[in-house]
């Protein structure tokens, strides 16, 4: 995945069957963000693979004050890259 400066990883083991996964997102390179992130804590959240989109979560993070509106695309892309990787792995394990 391209380095957006925002890191997203699984917050717990993915057994490949759950439709809701726990993810953790944090800023690794604040210089890549347009706005100034609130603090450099890691943000844990759950993501429903079938129902939700990365853009939903990114927008909620903006509205919760974690990021500047100008960074919604970077945040959404970082989440989308990680979710795509998880789904790709799942298809390889259980085609």
């Amino acid at each position: 995945a391209e380095d957006t400066g925002v890191r997203v990883e699984l917050a717990e083991e993915d057994n490949g069957r759950k439709s809701t996964i726990a993810l953790r997102l944090w800023v690794e390179d604040p210089k890549k963000l347009k706005g100034k992130p609130k603090d450099n804590g890691a943000i844990e959240f759950t993501f429903e693979l079938e129902k939700e989109t990365p853009e939903d979560v990114a927008q909620e993070m903006i509205e919760s004050g974690f990021f500047n509106e100008s960074d919604v695309k970077i945040v959404a892309k970082s989440i989308r890259d990680r979710v795509a990787l998880i789904q790709w792995r799942r298809e390889r394990i259980r085609p």
Binding site: R7, R24, W26, E28, D39, N40, G41, A42, I43, E44, F45, T46, V57, E60, M61, E63, S64, G65, F66
Partner: peptide, 27 residues
């Protein structure tokens, strides 16, 4: 550590925890 929690109006819970020390120093 103290885990701050923010619950968005749509109901999603965001839990803020310190970034894992090992990840910060990655090149």
């Amino acid at each position: 550590g103290l885990h701050a929690q923010v619950v968005h109006s749509a109901g999603r819970r965001f839990i803020v925890s310190p970034v894992p020390e090992s990840r910060l120093r990655e090149p």
